[in-house]
């Protein structure tokens, strides 16, 4: 019954303490919000916590949703704010990627059987660099590239969600990829 309703209608029902309606919103958006948080934070556990907190914050803020923006925009805004809060907390605790990447963080990378160990190591290190470079991007640029790559949204959808002109979305994505390229070129991955 709830699957056929629009996001805005579900929010209206959820405002009336209909937990099933809000549950349907969570089911529709949990993967995308998790992807957004992963791309913004770069770590699974941080992304999981941020996504959880974002949905709880959204439930508490149902009364403030006036319907003048799309539900997707509203959820994205909450999730991005939650990610920024998480990053600020991490900065306060002096937990940044440079400290973690010394080896204290375990990361599972399943390599193809045909790949040599050197190749596997190279790839793991490259992924690590990409993760660091993306997370280090300015928030407005990072948000666009994460929404495009992780949430697999079209330019039009990003434009509507962020309430930005289409050309601005494309320009920001271009700038983000340009900066990423420069960062990756500065730190080449050495193959042992």
């Amino acid at each position: 019954m709830y699957r056929e309703k629009s996001d805005e209608r579900l929010v209206e029902l959820a405002k009336g303490h209909d937990s099933e309606a809000f549950g349907e919103i969570v089911r529709r958006w949990e993967r995308k919000i998790f992807a957004l948080c992963f791309g913004m934070l770069g770590r699974e556990d941080d992304a999981r916590d941020a996504a959880q907190e974002a949905f709880v914050a959204a439930y508490k803020a149902l009364g403030n949703f006036r319907g003048d923006a799309k539900v997707s925009s509203w959820l994205h805004r909450i999730a991005v704010n939650q990610c920024l809060t998480t990053k600020r907390r991490q900065k306060t605790r002096a937990e940044d990627f440079l400290v973690d990447e010394d080896g204290s963080e375990e990361r599972v990378f399943i390599a193809s059987p045909s790949q040599s160990p050197a190749r596997v190591t190279e790839q793991a290190e490259r992924l690590q660099l990409v993760r660091q470079a993306v997370v280090a991007l300015p928030s407005d640029l990072k948000q666009v590239i994460v929404m495009k790559e992780f949430e697999e949204m079209t330019f039009q959808e990003i434009s509507e969600t962020l309430d930005l002109p289409l050309s601005t979305v494309k320009s920001r994505l271009y700038t983000a990829l340009k900066q990423l390229k420069m960062k990756l070129e500065r730190t080449p991955v050495e193959v042992v």
């Binding site: 992807a35 439930y59 992780f150």
Partner: peptide, 20 residues
């Protein structure tokens, strides 16, 4: 590079359950 990162590290992850 970003696509690879998403495919290798994020795509295999299961969506965590959200509990309200």
């Amino acid at each position: 590079a970003v696509f690879d990162w998403q495919r290798e590290e994020f795509a295999p992850l299961a969506t965590p359950p959200i509990r309200i």
